[in-house]
Design a protein around this nucleic acid. Structure first.
Lengths: 343, 343
DNA sequence: AACCATCGTTCAATCGTTTGACCGACAGTA
DNA sequence: TACTGTCGGTCAAACGATTGAACGATGGTT
């Protein structure tokens, strides 16, 4: 209640009011198990803390303990809703463990990755999660910070094993199996860019599911886009042009490209889902509002973020971290997929 | 180059290597203007810093200076792209001034606003920006922290004057004037929720623009939604039902509601833009991918975030802060608006 | 020759917590 | 009585950077 503005309340103030040494107060605050104390003394201390509105000073504590109580997360772009989900999951996991999450984007005007590493590598964070593409030079810098770090939703090509990813292949299989169940056989794939390992895994899942169903996948059945609407539109156009057989269904590697795919189909006079079914990975709010509403496979991105935090907090800089989060995925069926209708 | 893992390099290490006192090193690092030093000494110091890869310890510095070098931003939800823009702007402004931005959401599982204030009010941040709704109790708590703080894109009803907002009325006027220029007169408004002051200002702008054009605004010309697609759909349905005259154009208070508005219009057999034109505030990536692509008024949200940071860093807890960011807004014309065609 | 100013640098207190070491009082035991 | 062991605390040294004050050397002035 007594919240004096301006004056910071310290351990000493509390100790004085409670008539004990500050060491006692510190141990009470931190619930030191080695502390033996009379109940009434503890009472006095707790009361004094309440009365003065004492809050431990983070800087002093960090200085002493060499722990910041903070984790860093670097993402490419705040506007991408995929990262929003990762952030949300990471944030609440961090909070649950008494840590604060600092999220930075690596593409801002003056916020290069390098700049961030400089800022964060001074004891400001206890660990770092990277959902952004990272150069070898940056990785080296990371190593030199002596912090635990890991890639999130991204598996790097180096010899490091420090990542948490999702089961993208499984998601792709779910999507393709849905199309198969609807009777489709001419299923093409709009894949993600070469550099993205999520794209690679989704393509693999597509191939596996097709193979399992006894269907061929020819080179012309796959076109690569860059995870943007424009890229998706182009890739779809290419598939329509090149194919000998006309596809009755499309599996798209992400929702952004699906937007372009829908557009290309519409421009070519193809109705969705009457003429062509479309399904994409992963479910985003946007998917519901497209016309037609998009069928998707929802991936556990929040859990990915949360798991990353847990692993980070439990690891040393030297530890290997390699995990595939295998929480169940869910097919979200909307208007863009329908049973095959033979003309 | 010499980046020893594990061992932290301190001022003393640098001082020893350079053969000077640590005070000198500190002053060199901080570019203390009162420092007089021989060029060759400075050289030695700088070199030692480089060689050891010295980075000042933030905790120690914070403890001594009572500054954290960090600003806090609390938003309701990371998934909302409106906040993504504010974050981006705030982040790069903060970085430009050598500060780190900590962004937290107030709606997460265990991340109530209260919890955040607890975590941040321990010297972890030098100031706080709130883009979330705030209770009186929370505001009181804020005051007791003795930090400078302000509301962002939200003006509170209290007697405080601590906010940065945009010129929402002006945005609304731009939108309505666009419709007027296209020849529309029966222009209705799907407004935002009662609690949101942005909604109030946009409604005011709508009224002003109509009045300026010599047009009446009757009560039935405005319906309130809750800034969600569902709310927009309902509000539009209400406008179609209640009105004596059928509207030829709709001004929608945000893009999320516009999604629902488009849906309701479609379900009622009205084509956009042939039968009804639709324009919304503010421009989001999503707007481009709706069918039809949505005409919007782009607001300077990044600048809002940036300006908030600047004002925060330049203010004391006692200062009043009340600013309307007046950067030019822009009408982004797409497919959802067209000239009035008289049947 | 004594004095003073300036330059370039060192000294040392301080920020608020944490934590191992230490210590007096009291009870139980031999 | 002397000794040992717990209980309930106190003491003080860190952690690393900042910053006002002090200080020795040098050169110039009178």
């Amino acid at each position: 209640m007594t919240a004096r503005r301006g004056t910071r309340v310290t351990l000493v103030d509390v100790a004085r009011l409670a008539g004990v040494d500050k060491a006692i107060v510190s141990r009470v605050v931190n619930e030191d198990p080695s502390l033996v104390i009379r109940p009434d003394t503890r009472e006095r201390v707790v009361e004094a803390i309440q009365n003065l509105g004492y809050r431990p000073n983070v800087a002093a504590r960090s200085l002493r303990t060499a722990k910041a109580g903070t984790l860093g997360l670097v993402i490419p772009d705040f506007a991408n809703p995929v990262y929003a989900e990762i952030i949300t999951g990471a944030e609440s996991a961090a909070l649950a463990q008494g840590h604060v999450l600092v999220t930075g984007s690596s593409t801002g005007a003056n916020s290069s990755m390098d700049r961030y590493l400089d800022l964060l590598g001074q004891g400001r964070v206890d660990g770092l999660m990277l959902a952004s593409p990272t150069t070898a030079h940056e990785q080296q810098k990371l190593e030199s910070l002596g912090l635990p770090w890991m890639m999130v939703n991204r598996r790097d090509t180096g010899d490091h094993h420090r990542f948490v990813i999702l089961n993208d292949a499984q998601a792709a299989k779910l999507a393709v199996e849905h199309l198969l169940e609807l009777g489709h056989q001419e299923i093409v794939h709009v894949a993600g860019p070469f550099g993205a390992d999520t794209a690679r895994r989704r393509a693999t899942g597509y191939r596996q599911a097709m193979k399992l169903a006894g269907l061929d996948v020819r080179a012309e059945s796959i076109a690569r886009g860059d995870y943007t609407p424009g890229g998706g539109a182009d890739a779809m156009a290419q598939l329509l042009r090149g194919g000998v057989l006309s596809p009755t269904a499309v599996f798209v590697a992400n929702v952004a490209m699906a937007v372009g795919v829908l557009d290309t189909l519409r421009r070519n006079g193809l109705r969705v889902p009457e003429d062509v079914s479309v399904v994409a990975v992963h479910d985003l709010p946007l998917a519901e509002h497209l016309v037609p509403a998009l069928t998707t496979v929802r991936m556990p991105l929040q859990e990915l973020g949360a798991r990353a935090v847990e692993l980070l907090l439990a690891s040393s800089p030297e530890d290997e971290v390699a995990e595939v989060v295998n929480t169940a995925m869910e097919l979200v069926q909307r208007e863009s997929t329908a049973p095959l209708t033979r003309d």
